[in-house]
Amino acid sequence: MRRILVTGALGQIGSELTVRLRQLYGDASVLATDIRQGLGAAAECGPYRLLDVTDSRAYVEAVREFRADAVIHLAAVLSAAAETKPLLAWDLNMGGLLNALEAARAHGCSLFAPSSIAVFGRGAPKRDTPQDAVQRPATMYGISKSAGELLCDYYRLKYGMDVRGLRFPGLVSHAAPPGGGTTDYAIDMYIQAVRTGRYSSPLARGTFLDMMYMPDAIESIVKLMEAEASRLKHRNAYNVSAMSVDPEAIASSIRRRLPNFELGYGVDPLRQSIADGWPDALDASAAREEWDFAAAYDLDRMTDDMLAHLSVKFGSGESHAVSGE
Protein backbone atom coordinates (compact mmCIF):
# COMPACT_ATOMS: atom_id res chain seq x y z
CA MET A 1 0.00 0.00 0.00
CA ARG A 2 1.30 3.45 -0.96
CA ARG A 3 -1.79 5.64 -1.51
CA ILE A 4 -4.82 4.60 0.53
CA LEU A 5 -8.45 5.73 0.46
CA VAL A 6 -10.43 5.08 3.65
CA THR A 7 -14.24 5.20 3.75
CA GLY A 8 -16.08 5.59 7.05
CA ALA A 9 -12.99 7.40 8.31
CA LEU A 10 -14.88 9.18 11.10
CA GLY A 11 -16.34 5.96 12.49
CA GLN A 12 -15.18 3.70 15.28
CA ILE A 13 -12.44 1.91 13.33
CA GLY A 14 -11.74 4.60 10.76
CA SER A 15 -10.98 7.39 13.19
CA GLU A 16 -8.06 5.44 14.65
CA LEU A 17 -7.00 3.50 11.57
CA THR A 18 -6.62 6.66 9.48
CA VAL A 19 -4.25 8.18 12.03
CA ARG A 20 -2.21 4.97 12.19
CA LEU A 21 -1.98 4.66 8.40
CA ARG A 22 -0.73 8.24 8.16
CA GLN A 23 1.94 7.47 10.73
CA LEU A 24 3.09 4.54 8.60
CA TYR A 25 2.70 5.89 5.06
CA GLY A 26 2.66 9.69 5.44
CA ASP A 27 -0.16 12.19 5.96
CA ALA A 28 -0.56 12.99 2.27
CA SER A 29 -0.76 9.32 1.30
CA VAL A 30 -4.04 8.57 3.10
CA LEU A 31 -7.34 10.12 1.98
CA ALA A 32 -10.00 10.02 4.70
CA THR A 33 -13.60 10.05 3.48
CA ASP A 34 -16.97 10.03 5.21
CA ILE A 35 -20.51 11.23 4.64
CA ARG A 36 -20.18 13.76 7.47
CA GLN A 37 -18.24 16.99 7.60
CA GLY A 38 -14.80 16.20 8.92
CA LEU A 39 -13.93 16.69 12.59
CA GLY A 40 -11.07 15.25 14.61
CA ALA A 41 -7.61 13.97 13.78
CA ALA A 42 -8.71 11.67 10.94
CA ALA A 43 -10.08 14.65 9.02
CA GLU A 44 -7.63 17.31 10.11
CA CYS A 45 -4.16 15.73 9.90
CA GLY A 46 -4.33 14.93 6.19
CA PRO A 47 -6.53 15.06 3.08
CA TYR A 48 -10.26 14.68 3.67
CA ARG A 49 -13.20 14.35 1.27
CA LEU A 50 -16.96 14.05 1.68
CA LEU A 51 -18.09 10.78 0.11
CA ASP A 52 -21.41 8.94 0.05
CA VAL A 53 -20.38 5.33 -0.64
CA THR A 54 -23.78 4.59 -2.18
CA ASP A 55 -22.93 7.04 -4.99
CA SER A 56 -21.02 4.81 -7.40
CA ARG A 57 -19.82 7.64 -9.64
CA ALA A 58 -18.50 9.67 -6.70
CA TYR A 59 -16.72 6.58 -5.33
CA VAL A 60 -14.92 5.92 -8.62
CA GLU A 61 -13.99 9.60 -8.98
CA ALA A 62 -12.53 9.71 -5.48
CA VAL A 63 -10.35 6.64 -6.12
CA ARG A 64 -9.25 7.95 -9.52
CA GLU A 65 -8.50 11.52 -8.45
CA PHE A 66 -6.50 10.39 -5.42
CA ARG A 67 -4.65 7.77 -7.50
CA ALA A 68 -5.26 5.22 -4.77
CA ASP A 69 -3.67 1.79 -4.93
CA ALA A 70 -5.59 0.48 -1.90
CA VAL A 71 -9.11 1.03 -0.58
CA ILE A 72 -10.08 0.40 3.05
CA HIS A 73 -13.88 0.20 2.97
CA LEU A 74 -15.30 0.67 6.48
CA ALA A 75 -18.61 2.49 5.91
CA ALA A 76 -21.48 0.41 7.36
CA VAL A 77 -24.54 0.39 9.60
CA LEU A 78 -23.76 -1.74 12.68
CA SER A 79 -25.74 -4.59 14.20
CA ALA A 80 -28.25 -3.11 16.65
CA ALA A 81 -28.75 0.00 14.55
CA ALA A 82 -29.27 -2.17 11.47
CA GLU A 83 -32.18 -3.97 13.14
CA THR A 84 -34.02 -0.68 13.59
CA LYS A 85 -33.44 0.33 9.93
CA PRO A 86 -32.92 -2.93 8.02
CA LEU A 87 -33.52 -1.55 4.51
CA LEU A 88 -31.07 1.29 5.07
CA ALA A 89 -28.55 -1.21 6.43
CA TRP A 90 -28.88 -3.43 3.35
CA ASP A 91 -28.61 -0.51 0.94
CA LEU A 92 -25.57 0.98 2.65
CA ASN A 93 -23.75 -2.21 3.60
CA MET A 94 -24.24 -4.04 0.31
CA GLY A 95 -24.52 -1.11 -2.10
CA GLY A 96 -21.49 0.57 -0.59
CA LEU A 97 -19.43 -2.62 -0.76
CA LEU A 98 -20.40 -3.25 -4.38
CA ASN A 99 -19.34 0.29 -5.26
CA ALA A 100 -16.06 -0.23 -3.40
CA LEU A 101 -15.36 -3.41 -5.36
CA GLU A 102 -16.18 -1.77 -8.68
CA ALA A 103 -14.08 1.32 -7.93
CA ALA A 104 -11.15 -0.84 -6.85
CA ARG A 105 -11.53 -3.08 -9.90
CA ALA A 106 -11.64 -0.11 -12.27
CA HIS A 107 -8.35 1.26 -10.94
CA GLY A 108 -6.47 -1.91 -10.02
CA CYS A 109 -6.59 -1.33 -6.25
CA SER A 110 -6.33 -3.84 -3.46
CA LEU A 111 -9.35 -3.77 -1.14
CA PHE A 112 -9.94 -4.38 2.55
CA ALA A 113 -13.54 -5.07 3.60
CA PRO A 114 -14.29 -6.05 7.21
CA SER A 115 -16.72 -8.77 8.17
CA SER A 116 -18.04 -9.75 11.61
CA ILE A 117 -18.89 -12.54 14.01
CA ALA A 118 -22.48 -11.62 13.10
CA VAL A 119 -22.22 -13.87 10.01
CA PHE A 120 -22.57 -16.92 12.23
CA GLY A 121 -26.03 -18.02 13.32
CA ARG A 122 -27.36 -20.65 15.69
CA GLY A 123 -26.11 -23.53 13.56
CA ALA A 124 -22.44 -22.68 14.10
CA PRO A 125 -20.46 -23.96 17.12
CA LYS A 126 -20.58 -21.43 19.97
CA ARG A 127 -17.06 -22.14 21.24
CA ASP A 128 -13.99 -22.02 18.99
CA THR A 129 -16.15 -21.31 15.95
CA PRO A 130 -13.97 -22.50 13.04
CA GLN A 131 -12.86 -20.41 10.09
CA ASP A 132 -15.15 -22.36 7.79
CA ALA A 133 -18.46 -22.83 9.60
CA VAL A 134 -22.11 -22.73 8.62
CA GLN A 135 -23.49 -19.21 8.27
CA ARG A 136 -27.18 -18.72 9.04
CA PRO A 137 -27.31 -15.16 10.43
CA ALA A 138 -30.62 -13.94 11.83
CA THR A 139 -29.94 -10.18 11.66
CA MET A 140 -29.78 -7.79 8.72
CA TYR A 141 -26.24 -6.84 9.72
CA GLY A 142 -25.15 -10.47 9.74
CA ILE A 143 -26.94 -11.19 6.47
CA SER A 144 -25.25 -8.24 4.76
CA LYS A 145 -21.84 -9.24 6.10
CA SER A 146 -22.27 -12.87 5.03
CA ALA A 147 -23.37 -11.79 1.55
CA GLY A 148 -20.45 -9.36 1.52
CA GLU A 149 -17.97 -12.15 2.15
CA LEU A 150 -19.37 -14.06 -0.83
CA LEU A 151 -19.27 -10.95 -3.00
CA CYS A 152 -15.63 -10.32 -2.13
CA ASP A 153 -14.78 -13.94 -2.96
CA TYR A 154 -16.62 -13.57 -6.27
CA TYR A 155 -14.58 -10.54 -7.30
CA ARG A 156 -11.37 -12.27 -6.32
CA LEU A 157 -12.20 -15.42 -8.27
CA LYS A 158 -13.77 -13.77 -11.32
CA TYR A 159 -11.52 -10.73 -11.72
CA GLY A 160 -8.38 -11.76 -9.86
CA MET A 161 -8.69 -8.85 -7.43
CA ASP A 162 -6.67 -8.66 -4.24
CA VAL A 163 -9.54 -8.52 -1.74
CA ARG A 164 -8.80 -9.16 1.94
CA GLY A 165 -10.81 -8.99 5.14
CA LEU A 166 -11.20 -9.87 8.80
CA ARG A 167 -14.17 -11.17 10.78
CA PHE A 168 -14.04 -8.81 13.71
CA PRO A 169 -15.37 -9.58 17.16
CA GLY A 170 -16.68 -6.72 19.31
CA LEU A 171 -14.22 -3.82 19.15
CA VAL A 172 -13.50 -1.69 22.22
CA SER A 173 -12.14 1.84 21.85
CA HIS A 174 -11.68 4.88 24.07
CA ALA A 175 -11.47 7.23 21.07
CA ALA A 176 -14.94 6.80 19.56
CA PRO A 177 -18.35 6.62 21.31
CA PRO A 178 -20.57 3.53 21.01
CA GLY A 179 -21.77 3.30 17.43
CA GLY A 180 -24.82 1.03 17.45
CA GLY A 181 -23.11 -2.35 17.74
CA THR A 182 -24.34 -5.10 20.05
CA THR A 183 -20.92 -5.42 21.69
CA ASP A 184 -20.65 -1.64 22.16
CA TYR A 185 -22.06 -2.07 25.66
CA ALA A 186 -18.48 -2.77 26.73
CA ILE A 187 -17.37 0.70 25.64
CA ASP A 188 -20.29 2.27 27.45
CA MET A 189 -19.48 0.31 30.60
CA TYR A 190 -15.97 1.72 30.72
CA ILE A 191 -17.25 5.24 30.11
CA GLN A 192 -19.84 5.02 32.87
CA ALA A 193 -17.35 3.40 35.25
CA VAL A 194 -15.22 6.53 34.97
CA ARG A 195 -18.06 9.05 34.90
CA THR A 196 -20.59 7.66 37.39
CA GLY A 197 -19.18 4.53 38.98
CA ARG A 198 -22.15 2.38 37.93
CA TYR A 199 -23.60 0.73 34.83
CA SER A 200 -26.72 -1.16 33.78
CA SER A 201 -25.85 -3.83 31.21
CA PRO A 202 -28.20 -4.42 28.26
CA LEU A 203 -26.88 -8.00 28.06
CA ALA A 204 -27.53 -10.62 30.72
CA ARG A 205 -24.93 -12.05 33.07
CA GLY A 206 -23.17 -14.96 31.42
CA THR A 207 -23.55 -13.63 27.87
CA PHE A 208 -20.07 -14.30 26.54
CA LEU A 209 -18.91 -12.62 23.35
CA ASP A 210 -15.59 -12.22 21.61
CA MET A 211 -13.93 -8.84 22.09
CA MET A 212 -10.78 -7.13 20.82
CA TYR A 213 -9.11 -3.87 21.76
CA MET A 214 -8.91 -1.36 18.95
CA PRO A 215 -5.08 -1.17 18.77
CA ASP A 216 -5.05 -4.91 18.02
CA ALA A 217 -7.73 -4.46 15.35
CA ILE A 218 -5.78 -1.64 13.70
CA GLU A 219 -2.52 -3.56 13.63
CA SER A 220 -4.32 -6.64 12.28
CA ILE A 221 -5.65 -4.68 9.30
CA VAL A 222 -2.22 -3.33 8.48
CA LYS A 223 -0.54 -6.70 8.95
CA LEU A 224 -3.04 -8.52 6.74
CA MET A 225 -2.85 -5.93 3.97
CA GLU A 226 0.96 -6.07 4.01
CA ALA A 227 1.11 -9.88 4.17
CA GLU A 228 2.73 -11.78 1.32
CA ALA A 229 -0.09 -12.92 -0.99
CA SER A 230 1.45 -16.34 -1.56
CA ARG A 231 0.91 -17.23 2.13
CA LEU A 232 -2.80 -16.43 2.11
CA LYS A 233 -5.12 -19.35 1.52
CA HIS A 234 -8.35 -17.67 2.61
CA ARG A 235 -7.54 -13.98 1.95
CA ASN A 236 -11.03 -12.90 2.90
CA ALA A 237 -12.91 -12.92 6.24
CA TYR A 238 -10.27 -14.30 8.62
CA ASN A 239 -11.49 -15.02 12.13
CA VAL A 240 -9.60 -12.88 14.66
CA SER A 241 -10.07 -12.94 18.42
CA ALA A 242 -8.47 -11.63 21.59
CA MET A 243 -10.78 -12.47 24.53
CA SER A 244 -14.17 -13.99 25.32
CA VAL A 245 -15.92 -12.04 28.09
CA ASP A 246 -19.32 -11.43 29.64
CA PRO A 247 -20.45 -8.24 31.43
CA GLU A 248 -19.37 -9.54 34.84
CA ALA A 249 -15.85 -10.34 33.60
CA ILE A 250 -15.45 -6.75 32.37
CA ALA A 251 -16.85 -5.40 35.66
CA SER A 252 -14.43 -7.56 37.67
CA SER A 253 -11.53 -6.24 35.63
CA ILE A 254 -12.72 -2.65 36.19
CA ARG A 255 -12.97 -3.24 39.98
CA ARG A 256 -9.21 -3.88 40.11
CA ARG A 257 -8.93 -0.13 39.47
CA LEU A 258 -12.33 1.12 40.66
CA PRO A 259 -13.26 -1.11 43.62
CA ASN A 260 -16.65 0.56 44.14
CA PHE A 261 -17.88 0.11 40.59
CA GLU A 262 -21.46 -1.22 40.51
CA LEU A 263 -22.87 -3.39 37.74
CA GLY A 264 -26.59 -3.93 37.33
CA TYR A 265 -28.70 -5.41 34.55
CA GLY A 266 -31.44 -3.90 32.40
CA VAL A 267 -31.56 -6.41 29.58
CA ASP A 268 -32.45 -5.07 26.13
CA PRO A 269 -34.41 -7.84 24.36
CA LEU A 270 -33.16 -6.79 20.91
CA ARG A 271 -29.48 -6.77 21.81
CA GLN A 272 -29.83 -9.93 23.90
CA SER A 273 -31.46 -11.82 21.03
CA ILE A 274 -28.67 -10.72 18.69
CA ALA A 275 -25.95 -11.72 21.15
CA ASP A 276 -27.54 -15.11 21.82
CA GLY A 277 -27.09 -16.02 18.16
CA TRP A 278 -23.41 -15.10 18.01
CA PRO A 279 -20.35 -17.22 18.92
CA ASP A 280 -18.79 -17.07 22.38
CA ALA A 281 -15.30 -17.33 20.90
CA LEU A 282 -13.76 -17.66 17.43
CA ASP A 283 -10.98 -19.99 16.32
CA ALA A 284 -8.33 -17.67 14.85
CA SER A 285 -5.84 -20.40 13.90
CA ALA A 286 -6.06 -19.68 10.15
CA ALA A 287 -5.05 -16.05 10.74
CA ARG A 288 -2.16 -17.15 12.97
CA GLU A 289 -0.91 -19.69 10.44
CA GLU A 290 -1.30 -17.64 7.26
CA TRP A 291 -0.13 -14.15 8.32
CA ASP A 292 1.07 -14.46 11.94
CA PHE A 293 -1.90 -12.82 13.65
CA ALA A 294 -1.42 -12.21 17.38
CA ALA A 295 -3.35 -10.03 19.82
CA ALA A 296 -1.30 -7.98 22.28
CA TYR A 297 -4.12 -7.04 24.70
CA ASP A 298 -5.93 -9.31 27.12
CA LEU A 299 -8.87 -8.12 29.23
CA ASP A 300 -6.92 -6.59 32.12
CA ARG A 301 -4.42 -4.81 29.89
CA MET A 302 -7.29 -3.42 27.81
CA THR A 303 -9.11 -2.29 30.97
CA ASP A 304 -6.07 -0.48 32.33
CA ASP A 305 -5.55 1.38 29.07
CA MET A 306 -9.25 2.23 28.65
CA LEU A 307 -9.60 3.63 32.15
CA ALA A 308 -6.40 5.63 31.91
CA HIS A 309 -7.48 7.31 28.66
CA LEU A 310 -11.08 7.88 29.75
CA SER A 311 -10.01 9.41 33.06
CA VAL A 312 -8.01 11.99 31.13
CA LYS A 313 -10.79 12.47 28.58
CA PHE A 314 -13.52 13.20 31.11
CA GLY A 315 -11.32 15.02 33.61
CA SER A 316 -10.67 14.24 37.25
CA GLY A 317 -13.35 16.63 38.37
CA GLU A 318 -16.20 14.56 36.93
CA SER A 319 -14.74 11.08 36.99
CA HIS A 320 -14.17 8.54 39.72
CA ALA A 321 -10.46 8.29 40.52
CA VAL A 322 -8.67 5.31 39.02
CA SER A 323 -6.46 3.64 41.58
CA GLY A 324 -2.85 3.11 40.53
CA GLU A 325 -0.53 0.21 41.11
Score class of each variant (00 low, 15 high):
Gln131Glu: 15
Asn99Pro: 00
Gln272Ile: 02
Asp268Ile: 07
Pro169Met: 00
Gln37Phe: 02
Gln37Tyr: 04
Thr182His: 07
Lys233Glu: 12
Leu92Val: 15
Val30Ser: 09
Leu171Tyr: 04
Gln272His: 06
Thr129Glu: 11
Met306Ser: 03
Val119Leu: 12
Val53Arg: 15
Arg205Ser: 08
Lys145Cys: 10
Ala242Pro: 00
Ala41Glu: 14
Ala275Arg: 01
Leu74Val: 00
Thr129Ser: 12
Ser241Thr: 07
Ile72Pro: 00
Gly121Glu: 04
Leu39Phe: 14
Ser230Asp: 12
Arg122Ser: 07
Gly317Cys: 01
Ala103Val: 06
Ile72Val: 09
Pro137Phe: 02
Arg3Val: 11
Tyr154Arg: 10
Leu171Ser: 07
Ile221Pro: 00
Asp27Trp: 13
Asp128Lys: 09
Ser115Trp: 07
Gly181Asp: 12
His73Trp: 08
Tyr190Ser: 01
Leu101Phe: 04
Val60Asp: 15
Tyr297Gln: 05
Glu289Leu: 04
Pro279His: 14
Val77Met: 15
Glu318Phe: 15
Trp291Glu: 03
Tyr25Glu: 04
Asn99Val: 06
Pro169Thr: 01
Leu87Cys: 08
Asp162Met: 02
Met225Val: 05
Phe293Tyr: 15
Thr33Cys: 04
Met189His: 13
Ser15Leu: 03
Phe208His: 11
Pro259Asp: 03
Leu88Glu: 06
Leu10Ser: 04
Arg198Ile: 01
Leu101Met: 10
Asp292Leu: 07
Ser311Trp: 01
Gly264Val: 13
Met225Gln: 10
His309Trp: 01
Tyr199Glu: 08
Ser253Arg: 07
Gln192His: 14
Gly324Asn: 15
Ile143Pro: 01
Ala321Cys: 09
Ser173Ile: 05
Ser200Met: 12
Ala237Phe: 12
Leu10Lys: 02
Tyr190Thr: 00
Arg205Leu: 06
Asp52Val: 10
Asp128Pro: 00
Ala62Lys: 09
Arg105Ser: 06
Leu258Lys: 02
Gly324Asp: 13
Gly95Gln: 12
Asp280Val: 13
Ala43Glu: 02
Leu166Arg: 02
Glu65Phe: 15
Thr129Ala: 10
Gln192Tyr: 09
Arg288Ile: 11
Gly206Val: 02
Pro178Asp: 13
Ala294Lys: 11
Lys145Asn: 10
Phe66Cys: 03
Gly317Val: 01
Arg198Trp: 02
Ser285Gly: 06
Arg195Ala: 11
Asp292Trp: 01
Glu44Arg: 14
Met161Gln: 09
Asn260Thr: 05
Ala82Arg: 08
Ile191Lys: 15
Asp300Met: 07
Val6Arg: 06
Glu228Cys: 08
Ala186Trp: 02
Ala286Val: 10
Thr84Phe: 15
Asp132Asn: 14
Ser79His: 08
Ala106Phe: 02
Ser316Asn: 05
Ala70Tyr: 00
